[in-house]
Amino acid sequence: MALSNEEVLAGLAELITDETGIAADTVELDKSFTDDLDIDSISMMTIVVNAEEKFDVKIPDDEVKNLKTVNDAVTFIVKAQA
């Protein structure tokens, strides 16, 4: 069963908190991974791989560079689940 945007956001926030220690409530849709959340490329790849497992989706390496904001990632994951 596909998850809603809100559910994916909450799940993604958990993964980001786990990897970086950033408080989950600061992970908001309009935040940029690099500029706002200060997530480097290595942490981003770890979050991507963990998200693949958590949401049972594939996120191709080529796609990762397009995921600039939290909203980009949530939208991609929700669509990939469908």
Partner: peptide, 10 residues
């Protein structure tokens, strides 16, 4: 291999 951590080498 997909699960091998990106931080492994450093």
């Amino acid at each position: 291999p997909r699960r091998v951590l990106p931080m492994t080498v450093p």
